[in-house]
Design a protein around this nucleic acid. Structure first.
Length: 583
RNA sequence: GGGGCUGUAGUUCAGUUUGGUUAGAACGCCGGCCUGUCACGCCGGAGGUCGCGGGUUCGAGCCCCGUCGGCCCCGCCA
């Protein structure tokens, strides 16, 4: 039997070879006794010629006539160079074609509900229902291949660096706090539930207590929260933990990993990555994961604003601005829309100043020539720039302006394509104050170590305590984050107290971890990277759905299998579960 | 939980403003012809639960109410 080769790999070097191809019919072009068939397999597409005048029997021609889109075929023939004028530069294999001697239909196919081709305009809803057809489209096939390459490279790299891949339980225990858990009822113990892991956090720390020293896992994680284009309810983390290490070890490890992974998609990775404290990120970009591909940084104009007879400026704790280059040409309507957006983002209002001949501004009657010039100098604007100014409480102002910066940049086309700006964000506060519940909660998680110098602040000034935590950011997207953990039981106890968790609650929720730490926990720390997001950026995809084989919709359903679905009464009985009326 | 957009042949859409004869187009599909196509071409043909349910009306794809699904954003995501 002739050896099968992949259709997309055929090039001029293969001319003269007898080969077999197997795959799906992309397209048939029928000229009677001459038939062209585009054959697709996962490697690509190659044109096949079935020609009565070039050795194809009548039977072979008749078989080729029967072919329709998505039929599965096996065929044999010879690789032949096309004559000049017959070559197709649009096809990677366009210099050659297969002159077929034999064609066999392995499986027939119904007409697909949409054409299997890259530039499909089929609705995503339809494509998700027939996901196996969607995945045949070369761009999705290639995304799956890229994802495999990334996962494979990660395993290889981690292995070379002495990390052991350890599987942790999927059926685990709910730890309230954090995201909503997916629950799995226990049949053996009615009324109790497993939770699917939000991350293997506690187990990987137990691996450190267990003395495995270096752990990693390509781990599925589950969070029952609403979806976004970059958020799926189940997703994959590259989960890493190591003992006897510090922050620098993690930075070097991950930078090294990225220098092997991102080039798989042609993306260069200059190391080391720049680093920025959380505080600086907030001040300059109004966000803890700044997109460094463009400027338009936030500027502090509080001092100048105080000189303006405009009450909101005088009353505000702080006044900040961004400068939109050439933004003076923005229409009044557009600026009004931005004002609306700013209000939705929590700003009390949006002040704008155009640095054009008219000095147009929403506060023109308060704006003297002197203050206009002072603003011009402080902001270092050019002619025809536009300043967008927000006054108010510091965090609200920074946050709203940071969001506005991103929207304006997107709409004004200020974000360069094909640039990849990596960044470490460091020195996070350990706690965040929650207005709603009037208490502190852990910004990262409750096992994050406070900075050595700040341990005493756990009791005296929790809000000022810095964490040994870090995030790795790419183009404004959080790729991952981690921390050096607490390994001293008494520090952990103080941490729980600062979080308002009683000893009893702590024992109930994390007792096994607390107990484990009494038996000698090495200093350790780690990081978790979003594999899906990494592949999404590498594939230049718009949505996580484009890099997950079988993703869920915005309402967390699988349109192909129809999950989630009702179950039999019998199944519920076995679990001791009765549904509430009306559901 | 809130906001925006959206659902009409297999597919992508038009038709909804101003309710009115038989709901159109392109691609795809089916049959025929065709030896250099790769958006093949030419001739002929079939194909509709206007998401679903109810209401208003002499009459609803179009108006009203409800409901289901898809996408994006806010909240949420330690």
């Amino acid at each position: 039997m002739t050896e099968r080769v992949y259709a997309g790999t055929l090039r001029r070097e293969k001319v003269g070879r007898k080969v077999a191809l197997a795959g799906w019919v992309q397209k048939r072009r029928d000229f009677g006794e001459l038939i062209f068939v585009d054959l697709r397999d996962r490697s690509g597409i190659c044109q096949v010629v079935v020609d009565r005048e070039r050795g194809a029997s009548e039977e072979t021609v008749n078989t080729a006539k029967e072919l329709r889109s998505e039929f599965v075929v096996r065929l044999e023939g010879e690789v032949v160079e096309r004559t000049e004028g017959q070559k197709n530069p649009k096809l990677a294999t366009g210099d050659v074609e297969i002159v077929a001697t034999h064609v066999e239909i392995l499986a027939r196919a119904d007409t697909p509900p949409f054409a299997v081709e890259d530039d499909t305009d089929a609705a995503e809803e339809l494509r998700l229902k027939y996901r196996y057809l969607d995945l045949r489209r070369p761009s999705l096939t290639q995304n799956m291949m890229l994802r495999h390459k990334v996962a494979f490279a990660v395993r290889d790299y981690m292995n070379r660096n002495g990390f052991l891949e350890v599987e942790t339980p999927i059926l685990t225990k709910s730890t309230p706090e954090g995201a909503r858990d997916y629950l799995v009822p226990s049949r053996v113990h009615h009324g109790t539930f497993y939770a699917l892991p939000q991350s293997p956090q506690i187990f990987k720390q137990l691996c450190m207590v267990a003395g495995l020293e270096r752990y990693f896992q390509i781990a599925r994680c589950f969070r029952d929260e609403d979806l976004r284009r970059d958020r799926q309810p189940e997703f994959t983390q590259i989960d890493v933990e190591a003992s006897f290490i510090n922050e620098e070890f993690i930075y070097t490890l991950i930078e090294g990993l990225f220098t092997e992974v991102f080039p798989l998609a042609g993306i260069p990775v200059p190391v080391p990555f720049p680093r920025m404290s959380w505080h600086e990120a907030m001040e300059r970009f109004g966000i803890d994961r700044p997109d460094m591909r463009f400027g338009m940084e936030l500027k502090d104009v509080t001092a100048v604003a105080r000189t303006i007879e405009f009450e909101p400026f005088r009353a505000a704790a702080t006044v900040r601005a961004i400068v939109v280059p050439g933004g003076a040409s923005l229409s009044r309507k557009r600026i009004d829309d931005l004002t609306e957006e700013a209000k939705k983002l929590g700003a009390s209002g949006l002040i704008w100043v155009k640095f054009d001949a008219q000095h147009a501004s929403s506060i023109k009657k308060f704006l003297t020539d002197a203050s206009f010039d002072a603003l011009r100098q402080t902001l270092r604007v050019n002619e025809n720039d536009l300043a967008l100014i927000i006054a108010g409480k510091e965090l609200k102002v920074l946050d709203a302006l940071g969001q506005l910066r991103l929207r304006v940049a997107r709409e004004q086309g200020m974000i360069p394509e094909n640039r990849f700006e990596f960044l470490w964000v460091t020195d996070f506060p350990l706690f965040e104050w929650d207005e709603e519940t009037q208490r502190y909660f852990a910004r990262h998680h409750p096992f994050t170590s406070p900075a050595a110098a700040d341990i005493e602040k756990l009791e005296s000034d929790p809000g000022a305590t810095m964490a040994r935590a870090y995030d790795v950011v790419l183009n404004g997207l959080e790729l991952g984050g981690g921390s050096i953990r607490i390994n001293q039981p008494e520090v952990q106890a103080r941490m729980f107290r600062a979080l308002g968790i009683t000893d009893q609650e702590a024992r109930q929720r994390f007792g096994f971890l607390m107990e484990a730490f009494r038996y000698g926990a090495p200093p350790h720390g780690g990081v978790a990277l979003g594999l899906d997001r990494m592949v999404m950026l590498m594939a230049r995809a718009e949505s996580l759905r484009d890099v997950i084989a079988f993703p869920k919709t915005a309402r967390a359903q699988d349109l192909m299998s129809d999950a989630p679905a009702a179950v039999d009464e019998k199944q519920l009985d076995e679990l001791g579960i009765a549904l509430k009326k009306g559901t």
